[in-house]
Design a protein around this nucleic acid. Structure first.
Lengths: 249, 249
DNA sequence: AGTATTTATTGTCAGTATGACAATAAATAA
DNA sequence: TTATTTATTGTCATACTGACAATAAATACT
């Protein structure tokens, strides 16, 4: 560090600039069958007492937003994110001055996708405090519930992002086990798009190019067995995703 | 407001939570001919003295990030953004704890597209202070210059976002006048993608569906005159964009 | 056991989009 | 007048799409 640079740092007065509290909000999604669920917290205190809210929390002094999102995800869900494969990405930042009536809070919203066997939802930490998160069907919540703060806006933005992204990437596979059958992947699409049944034949044709057949088969209760596939690595949307632990500390 | 809610607000202690300074950084783009330019500020002080940096500034207490981005764009460029059509959208938020060595600064990066006649760049405010912004060819800068802070990361993210977005929207038209010829639009694509000449015939065929022929023609110095088109409103990427002034105050 | 049922996968086919390239048309420059 | 530049339209083989039928492989029911 040069002398001039050192001088500069000493002259710098952080108090001169407006400061805000920085938080992360999480849209945590998982699929069972063909319904899409999100994790919500029922607010116990004001403001928006009794309303559903997205889980979230403050960003620590030595974290960036993505680290904080991973940490909050672990805390709120009580999951071992090494075992439960997860995908976390930044969505957008919400900074309206009055979005939280108590103080200036800027929130970096994140999208988190949890892998399931498509039959049971990941268990959310039961031993947590009153602000424990619970699964709710997303499209039902959007149709019936009032959400706290600007969380409806965040949630719809998250759904649009995901709906768009699965059109040109295999991000949908992040909601399934490592190996999965085509009908499972198809159900994920139907869940996210909240749509009618997609044509199974055409779906198969379009997907198989990006998938690798493992040779193994599923045995469903009825019908022919389905082949188990894996996503060919070159088709996973971001070539590399930062692992949960790896911070910059 | 209920009694309980009022009690809560009084008990709330903003000082209990870590606070950060919030800024916006702008990737301001414009096209002439078939080269893409961005506005940069040459840093006069430490850190990163002498390096190119993106224009930006602090978010005021009564602004959200998008308002601040519009304001900074007006200040740094000295442009009347009513006349010069402009498009501003949020890109992503950069929050690494040490991204600014002086203090904790979290920056919401924005992408700004300025309309040109595709021959001359918008003039950047000459009567401004030492931190006046200047146009530099983007791909050249990326190949040769070192950028301050994490601004290289921001810039490449901005370019990727734009390159992807013009594949499925007519956002490229935001870099051109209200009425434009197909060769102008084609040059914008070539500039953004930094690529060889695109086939004019195929380009015409693909675009005309989303464009409206005004009936008027351009007169270039050589060659046949080109028809002037307008973007059909239903194809402009976001159905509504927030106008510069409209804040929530 | 044998038949119906469910489901995965492959096949068919018409409509449409794509990229490469040629042909035509309309202007200016020499 | 002719050459040149550029916009636009045409051609064509290939590929993808969506709708729908046909086949194959398993289980459920009687």
């Amino acid at each position: 560090m040069s002398a001039g640079e050192k001088q500069f740092l000493e002259d710098y007065e952080p108090e001169d600039y407006p400061s805000v509290a920085l938080t992360v909000d999480l849209v945590v999604l998982a699929v069972t069958g063909d319904t899409l669920y999100a994790a919500f917290v029922r607010r116990g205190g004001h403001p928006f007492k009794g309303a559903l809210a997205l889980p979230g929390g403050f960003v620590g002094p030595d974290e960036d937003a993505l680290d904080a999102a991973w940490r909050e995800l672990e805390e709120e869900t009580g999951l071992d994110l090494g075992a439960h494969r997860a995908h976390v990405e930044q969505l957008a930042t919400y900074s309206a001055p009055k979005r939280d009536p108590r103080m200036r809070v800027v929130s970096v919203a994140h999208l988190a996708l949890l892998a399931t066997d498509s039959r049971t939802l990941p268990e959310l930490d039961p031993g947590s405090d009153a602000t424990a998160a619970h699964w709710h069907p997303v499209h039902e919540v959007l149709a019936t519930e009032a959400l706290a703060f600007d969380h409806r806006e965040i949630l719809t933005a998250a759904l649009e992002r995901l709906a768009g992204k699965i059109e040109y990437t295999l991000t949908a596979a992040k909601l399934l086990p490592e190996e999965f059958a085509l009908y499972q992947l198809r159900h994920v699409y139907e869940a996210v798009w909240n749509t009618e049944k997609l044509d199974a034949g055409n779906f198969t044709r379009k997907m198989t190019g990006a998938l690798a057949d493992t040779g193994r088969k599923t045995s469903r209760s009825k019908g022919a067995p389905a082949a188990l596939f894996t996503v060919r690595s070159e088709y996973l949307s971001p070539p590399m995703t930062r692992p949960p632990g790896a911070a910059d500390r």
